[in-house]
Design a protein around this nucleic acid. Structure first.
Lengths: 341, 341
DNA sequence: GTGAAAGCGCTAACAC
DNA sequence: GTGTTAGCGCTTTCAC
């Protein structure tokens, strides 16, 4: 193993600068209330010694960690099928880094991990948590609330327990879906079908709700349940075509499913958008741009969502924050027009 | 803010169990050399109090953190274009979790972040690092070695500095490429083209090398440089078709580029695989399965690669590891046959 | 086998 | 302003 060169302590810095440990500490932590010449001397000592504060020692007394956990539940599902997750993390990371916080990643793989995560969060290793819980009946959110640690959820969690205030950030799935369907209707389409996502996820449920907001009177045969995958999109499309050969538009709950639908439409000789107009959701590049024809879709800014989650958490963590942060935040979506509708 | 309920300390546990702090500590850390009845009493006290060790206090004395940093350089590039990254992380996470280590994620966004990461790693916050450095001239690997912290690289790093032993895990890019090209040749194809990835990444460079191993004598016009994206694959394909309209096979450096190539071939009325056979690389689902026709491709087990990286690092970190861990590990790839070749 | 005691490196009162 | 001092909660010799 690497020879552990004994790292310099604050003591050493203080000695070299000819000041007390307390003064050295003050300088290291911003230097307020220390006279300029001393500040300079300490800075120099830090420089020369290559001093880096021992975070463990610091945390021990401050009880802060400047670290935030990011909990991603059940990554075997959609999270890994698309860059969603990566973009989200990137936004989070940027924001945390800007505020000198570390990102501790906790991936869970089913129930066994729940206890582990709960213990970790309750264990006071991090100051707060960012949690992605995608499923309606996920016990994780409840466990985490039990851990009593400031938390912001990604995506609207489903509270069986009633309307307790959960802080979360979500895309306007419902509104986006409405915009998609209205766009299709505006094109003069009258037999608009919907390929849903897995309905145990709030995002998919909300998109279906948005579809119903506009087409509440639609023939139930125009809705096919699916799973956010290309294969699932294919199956759903075949099903819809069998049930309603006269359909003239499809709103798929995400781009991946839309790409599957597109393939089936082409295979069955339907022209897109002439015979059947198609709209997706996510604007997940490169899928949306890569389909044939390129996909009209509902765009959500995933990276921004991550950034906002982090910002929200950091604000709740800040002891001298003045204003009450919002409890829930729903980010707008926008319709991106390409060739498919 | 959450009301910080004062967490029980070891002291409290010891008191409740009627033992000394030292004994309580022994039990909490495995309980070797403590008599059974005492062990039991301490365990019970821990249970009743809901005691969780304070990691900061522990690190302060042990100088271990049970935490590993994962550094991903420049995620704006390909890393975010595909689930590569997510799968890798999943493998790493599983392995670290199994050994009670935390995963601290460090995403870097260009040179500015390098110093930050180097400082962090040198700062003794983590026991080791897993580093993904994709670019040939990336200064990060050098900086990290300077930090003097045990490190395992993901993907073969490029050492300007000569053959110092860098520990890394990589896929057999070169061998995989050879297999792909040989497969094409075995199909009787004689005018095999190659769409490269960005050649400043070792993976892309190695795949090109593999292509050349088999077709060293190929017309240079049969190689088009590209960038691992569908759009790039399209451009490269057009270029190749313009230069060598008689080509009868294409080996694309990844599945995304292959999907772009496929689109252009279809658009230009070439049948796949009859007129032009196509092979990709990665076996990145759902891309590879989702193309039309589904892609024959070279599979690499990304998640396993992550897991092995973590395992290797953990072994280097283990003070009572007996055997010398290997310095470099190249994981095999396998050809997956689908319809495109 | 168990306990007493000495710190790990740092911050935050509190004096001066 | 600056220094002195008392811990933060834990592990680990070292006696017993």
């Amino acid at each position: 193993m690497t020879e552990t060169a004994p790292r310099p302590t604050l003591e050493a810095v203080a000695a070299r600068a000819g000041v007390s440990r307390a003064t050295a500490s003050r300088v290291v932590n911003g230097g307020d209330g220390v006279r300029e010449p001393l500040v300079e001397r300490v800075r120099q000592a830090v420089e020369e010694l290559g001093y880096v504060p021992n975070q463990a020692a610091r945390s021990l007394v401050t009880r802060r960690h400047d670290a935030v956990a990011v909990v991603i539940a059940e990554p075997e599902t959609r999270v890994f099928a698309d860059p969603f997750f990566a973009l989200q993390l990137r936004g989070i990371s940027k924001e945390l880094t800007a505020h000198d916080n570390q990102l501790v990643l906790l991936l869970t793989e089913g129930r066994d991990d729940h206890a582990r995560v709960a213990r970790y969060l309750a264990g006071g290793h991090v100051d707060g948590a960012l949690v992605f819980s995608l499923h309606l009946d996920d016990p994780l959110p409840g466990l985490i609330r039990g851990a009593g640690i400031p938390t912001v959820f990604g995506g609207r969690p489903d509270w069986h327990g009633g309307p307790e205030a959960a802080v979360y950030v979500d895309s306007d799935n419902r509104g986006g879906a409405r915009a998609a369907v209205r766009h299709l209707a505006g094109l003069g389409r009258t037999r608009i079908a919907h390929i849903t996502g897995p309905l145990d996820q709030t995002s998919a449920a909300d998109r279906l709700q948005g579809f119903r907001d506009v087409r509440g009177d639609a023939d139930p045969h125009l809705v096919a349940e699916s799973d956010f995958t290309p294969g699932g999109g294919e199956r759903a499309m075949r099903e819809l075509l069998a049930r309603r050969p006269d359909l003239d538009a499809v709103f798929a709950a995400n781009d991946l499913a839309a790409s599957g639908a597109l393939r089936v439409l082409r295979e069955q000789g339907r022209r897109v958008p002439e015979d059947v107009a198609v709209v997706g959701f996510d604007d997940m590049l490169p899928v949306a741009e890569g389909t044939d024809p390129p996909l009209t879709t509902v765009r959500q800014d995933i990276e921004e969502m991550g950034r906002i989650m982090a910002r929200l958490l950091l604000r709740r963590l800040d002891p001298n924050a003045t204003d009450d942060p919002p409890a829930g935040l729903v980010l707008p979506t926008t319709l991106v027009r390409r060739a498919s509708a």
